[in-house]
Structures are given as C-alpha cells and as structure tokens.
Amino acid sequence: MSSLSPPAHKIWWKEPIERVEIMWIGICIVWGLLMTFMMPYWHVVGKQNLSNEAYRITPAYFQKKAQEVVDKHTVRVETDQKIPVVAPPVGSDVYLVARLWEWWPILELKKDQSYRLHISSMDWQHGFSLQPANINAQIMPGYDMVITVTPNKAGTYSVVCNEFCGIGHHKMVGKIYVKE
C-alpha cells in the first residue's frame, strides 16, 4: 500500500524503524542541541548581542530627550537642511530619532568607544539598518530601544530605513561618523 492508502499493517506503530532513519534522527537531535547552545553561548562570549533594555515612552518624551543631547553636544551642522552633527561624550546616552522620512540627528562617535544608543520612532514603524556594517533592528513608536554600540572601524556609515514607511521610505537615510 502506498502513502495514499491506510497503512497495510494496522498496528503500524509497532513496526521497526528503518536504520537510516534512526541514525538521521540522532544527528538532527545533536545538531539541534548544538544550535540551541550557540545562542546563550554567544550571550556569554560573543560581542554582538541585543540588550534587553527597552522602555515604553511617548514620542514627545523621546523627542525632548533627543533635543537635550542635540542642544548640548552639537559640533557643527551639515547639508542644506542644517542637520546637527552630535558628538556625545564617550559612554553617554545618545538619541536617534526615526521619523517620516529621516534619521535625526547625525552622530559622530569614536572608534572602540561605547555609547548607549537610544532609538525610537515618532510615527510609523521603521527599520534601523546601519550600512555597510549591516546591523538591523525594528524600530517602533512608543518603545525606546537601548543598544550599547561599540564601533570597531572608523569611517562614514549610513542608516538606511528597511521597514516600509510610506512613499518617502527610500529617502530616509541618516549618517553616523566614526572617528579614530
């Protein structure tokens, strides 16, 4: 009888299992356990983990915090839109605002130094996508996501939006400088 018909032996659960199947199931279990182990293991030894730190906030509150840092640590403005470039002290709280359709402000960080980066959206969902480092995260209104970032290479990075956010989605590109 083929798979289209009821099993030929009514008591099929007592039939012996094919040897190759048993071997394969064993391999799958071991591989699954190894993959399960890798995630907590990386939390211990790996350098790329998201923190569990996040806060429920209102967009207005987040905007206010971002503005405070901008007022304090702006070193210059760039482009026709006079976007502030913020160089925050090492280890401090830095705010990146996602809104239709910009990442605001521009940040200037130091290589191999850590910063507490807060990201949140003022309106719809956005996607934080740091290029070419290719670090990606989901950004939502009402949630302040805190990631401690440690840039490992100097250069000019772009923040692309990779969650669809309407007709100007493709214009939403921000900038982060990393200095030696």
């Binding site: 790329q48 983990n49 998201l50 996607g127 996508s129 670090i135 990606n136 995260a137």
Partner: peptide, 10 residues
Amino acid sequence: EQINLIIHNT
C-alpha cells in the same frame, strides 16, 4: 537570535 541582526528586513 544574534545572526538575525545582520539579516533582518534585508
């Protein structure tokens, strides 16, 4: 969990 960081929404 961690590898998703370099893939999510790309």
